[in-house]
Design a protein around this nucleic acid. Structure first.
Length: 502
RNA sequence: GGCCCGUUCGUCUAGCGGCCUAGGACACCGCCCUCUCAAGGCGGAGAUUCACGGGUUCGAAUCCCGUACGGGCUACCA
């Protein structure tokens, strides 16, 4: 086949975009870009009960957030539209007429109750085949015509060619796969209410949109032979298929809400970067070479290949995602970091003027104190995995002249022998207005204290840390002092002295 | 029940007949660095030798057949 590659991602908007769907979308996109083909987004919204426009909008937002772009689909249009299945009903009807003309389908008048009863009976009798028994397949033509004209309730079923032989296709991930024809029943194409079923619409849409490669979850592997039969009934050549194995939770079961965050949106809210999620998902089930753990969109789209997609299901490991996210955090730079952090600062209500009622908005505060905010970045970049991690760690920078002291830390560091002297000396040195409020002079001055007092550096600095940051664990001390300003630093030391005086 | 698919360190994976006494990454442990925590550097443990059992072959994690386990389909859901 020499025609241009055309692939699609076809989510059904019955919820938000999940990790599994996101990975399928990424692989389709990467494959299209790698092959110089087209990536198409099609919304499968034929289930009116569960599909909503909100979900569609949400899915599109998540795909965009991930950095994916499509050549055809909602929002961008294209020559093979519409791209919402609910707007494509006419073609399903036309194709049904074609199938009727080819005598490839027949009406079935069995009721759902009858079918269920027969299925149960078949199951109970130990029969290996529990599909439709084809009782309407050979009804006398006159009878059929009569029932049809009298408006009898009926579905349309595919007339599976009995002499077909096994349905064989070469899956681009799983290799040659074969299904015995006896296992395939005359499944329903069009329901009694006139709506088409999934295995029918997906074929019509993919055919009409001239999709060349169907890349989707392997829960569809067993549906593939049915769809191939529809292609054949229509007189069409089926596309290539590539099935992707599932993503599992840590317990080895299919990933679901039970496992915590599973939607792309949830990860975005947690403060994961799109580049990091894309990176992680790209390598969850596909590998560049077995060595590469960090990959960006460019490298991915230059090298993606279906041959290197893994057949095994993969367990989703948020710890590794977090590690990757940390790498991106460390590399993004102060400016981008602060921009990304703003929503979280707003969440916590952090501004330089503390929680005063007349505090300016976070946006204005950041704009007015840009360099101060950017100075936070080197303090935190190595200590946080996600943006949401950041705020608790930098809360002490936003509490003004006072900081809440952690009890345990006070006990361990402020109540320790030498702590009082350390605070007193620090207060004295830092009060000296001759001391320039910059990192080097501050650090030089404070580093002299341990020797002067005959104390271990650790004792002195931990006491000061607790006094200033409220906790024995914090970002670097001297840098924090610079950010806190002389006024706040002195105030916090005095405050700590009061707490510890006895 | 039937059909289909899968099975390499805890996890993601490399491996497509000899380079494997199985490599990388995350996680884990230790040491170094150090004002704490991280980060970083160095090292370690970790796969009863590649689910198990048979073959094929001079030679198998790699090919074939069974078994076990897991998953999917078997809907007038998608």
């Amino acid at each position: 086949m020499t025609s241009k590659v055309r692939v699609r991602f076809a989510p059904s908007p019955t919820g938000n975009l999940h990790i599994g769907g996101a990975r399928t979308a990424i692989y389709n996109w990467a494959f299209a870009r790698r092959m110089g083909g087209s990536f198409i987004l099609r919304i499968e919204d034929t289930d009116p009960e569960r599909s909503t426009p909100e979900n569609t909008a949400q899915i599109i937002r998540s795909l965009r957030w991930l950095g994916l772009n499509w050549d055809e689909g909602p929002e961008v249009g294209g020559a093979y539209g519409p791209y919402l299945q609910t707007e494509r009903f006419a073609s399903y009807g036309e194709m049904l007429e074609l199938l009727k003309k080819k005598d490839a389908v027949y009406p079935c008048f069995c009721s759902p109750e009858q079918l269920a009863a027969r299925r149960e009976a078949a199951l109970a009798s130990g029969s290996s085949f529990i599909g439709y028994d084809r009782s309407c397949r050979n009804l006398p033509p006159d009878d059929v015509a009569e029932r049809l004209s009298s408006g009898a309730c009926h579905t349309w079923r595919l007339k599976v060619p009995l002499d077909h032989g096994p349905v064989i296709f070469d899956d681009l991930v799983f290799g040659e796969t074969s299904f015995p024809i006896e296992q395939l029943d005359d499944f329903i194409l069009v329901r009694s209410d006139g709506t088409p079923t999934y295995n029918y619409v997906v074929v019509v849409d993919d055919a009409l949109m001239q999709i060349t490669h169907v890349i989707r979850g392997d829960d569809h592997l067993s549906n593939t032979p049915k769809q191939i039969l529809v292609y054949e009934a229509l007189g069409l050549i089926p596309p290539h298929f590539a099935h992707l194995s599932m993503i599992l939770g840590s317990d080895g079961k299919r990933l679901s809400k039970r496992h915590g965050a599973t939607s792309v949106e949830a990860f975005a809210d947690e403060g994961y970067f799109p580049e990091a999620l894309l990176n992680y998902l790209a390598l969850l089930g596909w590998s560049l070479d077995g060595e590469t753990t960090l990959i960006n969109a460019e490298l991915l789209t230059e090298n993606f290949s279906l041959e290197r997609v893994s057949k095994n299901p993969a367990v989703f490991d948020e710890t590794k995602l977090a590690w990757i996210n940390g790498v991106y955090l460390k590399e993004m730079g102060a400016s981008a970091f602060i921009d990304a952090l703003i929503p979280y600062l707003q969440d916590y209500g952090f501004t330089r003027s503390g929680s005063a009622a007349d505090a300016p908005g976070v946006l204005a505060d950041v704009a007015a104190n840009r360099s101060w905010y950017e100075a936070i970045y080197p303090l935190i970049a190595e200590r946080a995995k996600t943006l949401r991690d950041v705020c608790p760690q930098i809360a002490y920078l936003f509490s003004g002249g006072k900081v809440a002291l952690d009890e345990k830390s006070v006990e361990k560091c402020l109540a320790a022998p030498g702590a009082r002297e350390a605070l007193a000396s620090s207060l004295e040195l830092l009060s000296d207005t001759a001391l320039t409020w910059e990192l080097a002079p501050i650090e030089t001055a404070l580093r002299a204290i341990p020797e002067q007092l005959g104390l271990k550096p650790k004792v002195v600095f931990q006491a000061l840390r607790v006094a200033l940051c409220g906790n024995m664990v914090s970002p670097p001390l001297f840098e924090s002092i610079v950010l806190l300003s002389r006024e706040q630093t002195l105030s916090r030391i005095r405050n700590a002295q009061e707490t510890t005086s006895f």
